[in-house]
């Protein structure tokens, strides 16, 4: 999946303008002209320091979101009902890890090593998509994640795939292709519940009610309070505003949910036929920031599991770094 529409920043970030001052104005002009012509920037090309910094953070957070995003669904691999769902879920979670790998590789082209990125994830310094700090409580949660979170991620990633940095765009093209398959699997599994027994329908409605707010949070705070600079838009690092993406998501997927007889826990949710925009109750943005800052229901657990995996695999990685010694053969 994933990569929410929100680029988290560390506290005490350097201001864009200060960074800008160090860039050669001639080179900057050429760089910006290339971007405005729709050219891709490649790893060896000159780029402003701030462009490199922002992109590194964006791609890194996206990569972390993939491997952390594998966890809530991963816990259901052993419980998926029936061969079809079991195989589809393993393959899906495996794809997410593959996306993580592609994205770490893309981010590495900007100069930060995979190990450094993983260390920053584990120390809490770098963030991942907020939505994975919520628990997947039942099988229906897996179908809601597979359908709606993957759908939301696609909206975001299709936009980003048109961005300016070549390695990221190429990774995203492949990722979007796989995500669209996840979306089909998620939709299929969700329909099975929506059209199933009363118990299955209740289970699905309950999951949808619980996930609605995190999904509304997914694209980040409303444009009126979002701190993204115009510069990032001009440099084609950020490709669409949070509200635009949220609106696009609601426009495509809310009708599909309503068609299935499902309800969404927001009485104000509707499409304004005059403006063509969706209107809704603002989700709790204080909660959003609280969860980003470690206060969500699963932040600790997610990082603990990731730390366990890193710790458990350390000896393997050590052995891979040291394949030099060919041992003497035993006598018998």
């Amino acid at each position: 999946m994933y990569g929410g529409g929100y680029i988290f920043d560390e506290p005490n970030k350097k201001q864009l303008r200060e960074e800008q001052q160090h860039d050669d104005p001639e080179k900057l002009a050429i760089f910006e002209a290339r971007i405005s012509k729709g050219e891709k920037i490649e790893p060896g090309d000159w780029m402003p320091a701030e462009y490199r910094r922002q992109l590194t953070r964006l791609i890194e957070q996206h990569a972390h979101s993939e491997i952390i995003g594998a966890l809530p669904e991963g816990t259901w691999i052993t419980r998926a009902p029936g061969f079809k769902r079991k195989l589809a879920l393993i393959a899906k979670v495996q794809d997410e890890i593959g996306h993580g790998q592609l994205l770490y590789n893309a981010a590495e082209t900007l100069g930060k090593s995979r190990e450094a990125m993983i260390n920053d994830l584990l120390s809490g310094k770098s963030k991942y998509s907020n939505v994975f700090n919520y628990p997947a409580k039942t099988w229906a949660d897996v179908t809601v994640i597979g359908f709606l979170i993957d759908a939301a991620a696609i909206v975001n990633q299709v936009a980003n795939a048109k961005g300016s940095y070549g390695p990221y765009c190429r990774a995203l093209e492949r990722i979007c292709y796989e995500e669209s398959f996840h979306l089909k699997q998620g939709h299929d599994a969700l329909i099975a519940l929506a059209t199933g027994t009363p118990m299955q329908k209740d289970m699905l409605q309950d999951a949808l009610n619980r996930w609605w707010q995190p999904i509304m949070h997914f694209f980040g705070p409303p444009d009126k309070v979002s701190q993204h600079s115009e510069k990032l838009m001009q440099w084609r690092v950020k490709m669409a505003s949070n509200d635009e993406m949220r609106n696009q998501f609601l426009d495509t997927y809310v009708p599909k949910l309503w068609e299935l007889g499902l309800t969404l826990p927001d009485p104000l949710l509707h499409k304004n036929t005059e403006t063509g925009r969706w209107e809704y109750t603002d989700p709790d943005w204080d909660l959003f920031f609280k969860v980003i800052n470690g206060g969500g229901p699963c932040n600790q657990e997610r990082l603990q599991v990731r730390r366990w995996a890193e710790e458990e695999g350390r000896w393997v990685r050590k052995a891979l770094m040291n394949p030099k010694e060919r041992r003497a053969l035993p006598v018998a």
């Binding site: 491997i67 594998a70 966890l71 991963g74 691999i77 052993t78 061969f83 079991k86 195989l87 393993i90 393959a91 979670v93 495996q94 997410e96 890890i97 593959g98 993580g100 790998q101 770490y104 599991v305 366990w308 995996a309 458990e312 695999g313 350390r314 393997v316 990685r317 891979l320």
Partner: peptide, 29 residues
């Protein structure tokens, strides 16, 4: 083996082990 999905010692190995787990379950099916 599918229990390693997402938790492998390195990402590339995570992916490989998961593929083989899928093959096994496919054989059983």
């Amino acid at each position: 083996n599918s229990e390693w999905t997402g938790l492998g010692p390195i990402m590339e190995e995570d992916i490989a082990f998961s593929s083989m787990a899928q093959d096994k379950i496919g054989h059983a099916w």
